[in-house]
């Protein structure tokens, strides 16, 4: 029983060093975001500096995760998702933001594939990418102008928001990296159809469907009702009133 204690101690050491470095990564990335979002409007040098800072943060994070061959796909998809979300955050043209969002969602679907959830990856692609295209059309319809609108150029309090997001991300990473943060894997006895013994079979989508329509049948009915109510509500809200004054 000495071995777990010793490894716990070494884990604590790595925990402390990891947390300081993760804090540094978050702060450097937040500074890079601030420089990039103002530099993309004002000066090109500031934007380059911000990009370099974000690259440094990503490099440190990738170094901490390690470059095992199994994790290269994970690192690649995470980097793609982060790059798409940075495009979504700093670019001012709404069309570019929508494209960055689409890249982020597709990279997230790749992460779903890595977690052996192929059906959800496909569903997320369909729903989110479809919704993105619809919103994209709305953006084109609404903001169809040659010059950028004022509310797209001026962000609202980026420094405070970046500080809030950095603090939240640091706390989340700290909480996730705690040694007893993750519970031990346990099977669920209450949901018999949701237990899965052959995860990597190709027919796992069938098992997912069996779980959905047996263990969660009432929830499915409730979600269907909610969809119906949402459709009716959307039509009622978006309808022009008969007087014409909306």
């Amino acid at each position: 029983m000495n071995l777990p204690i010793a490894s716990l101690n070494s884990d604590e050491w790595t925990l402390v060093s990891w947390d300081t470095s993760s804090f540094l990564v978050v702060v450097v990335a937040a500074l890079g975001y601030l420089l990039l979002q103002s530099g993309i409007i004002h000066s090109r040098g500031r934007a380059f500096l911000g990009l370099i800072l974000i690259g440094i943060a990503g490099g440190i994070a990738a170094y901490r995760v390690g470059a095992h061959p199994e994790q290269l796909l994970f690192l690649g998809f995470t980097a793609l998702a982060t790059a798409g979300s940075i495009v979504f955050l700093v670019f001012r043209q709404p069309v570019h933001c929508a494209l960055g969002f689409a890249v982020t969602v597709l990279a997230t679907c790749g992460l779903f594939f890595l977690q052996s959830a192929p059906f959800l990856a496909a569903a997320m692609m369909i729903v989110y990418a479809g919704a993105t295209i619809i919103i994209f059309l709305f953006v084109l319809m609404f903001a169809h102008r040659s010059t950028l609108a004022n509310y797209d150029i001026r962000l609202s309090s980026p420094v405070t928001s970046a500080a809030v997001a950095a603090v939240l991300l640091t706390i989340l990473v700290y909480a996730i990296r705690q040694p007893d943060a993750l519970p031990s894997p346990r099977p669920s006895e209450m949901r018999p159809f949701s237990n899965e013994t052959h995860r990597l079979e190709p027919s796992s989508t069938a098992t997912l469907g069996r779980s959905l329509f047996s263990d969660y049948l009432w929830s499915v009915e409730l979600a269907g009702t909610l969809l119906l109510v949402a459709v009716i509500g959307a039509i009622a809200v978006a309808q022009r009133s008969p007087e014409g004054d909306a």
């Binding site: 975001y33 979002q37 995470t78 998702a81 982060t82 979300s85 940075i86 979504f88 955050l89 982020t104 997230t108 509310y151 797209d152 001026r154 962000l155 609202s156 309090s157 980026p158 405070t160 928001s161 970046a162 809030v164 997001a165 950095a166 939240l168 991300l169 989340l172």
Partner: peptide, 14 residues
């Protein structure tokens, strides 16, 4: 990371 990026976008975008 995705959640915090979404939060940042929600706070900054107008």
């Amino acid at each position: 990371i995705l959640f915090c990026v979404g939060l940042l976008g929600f706070l900054t975008r107008r």
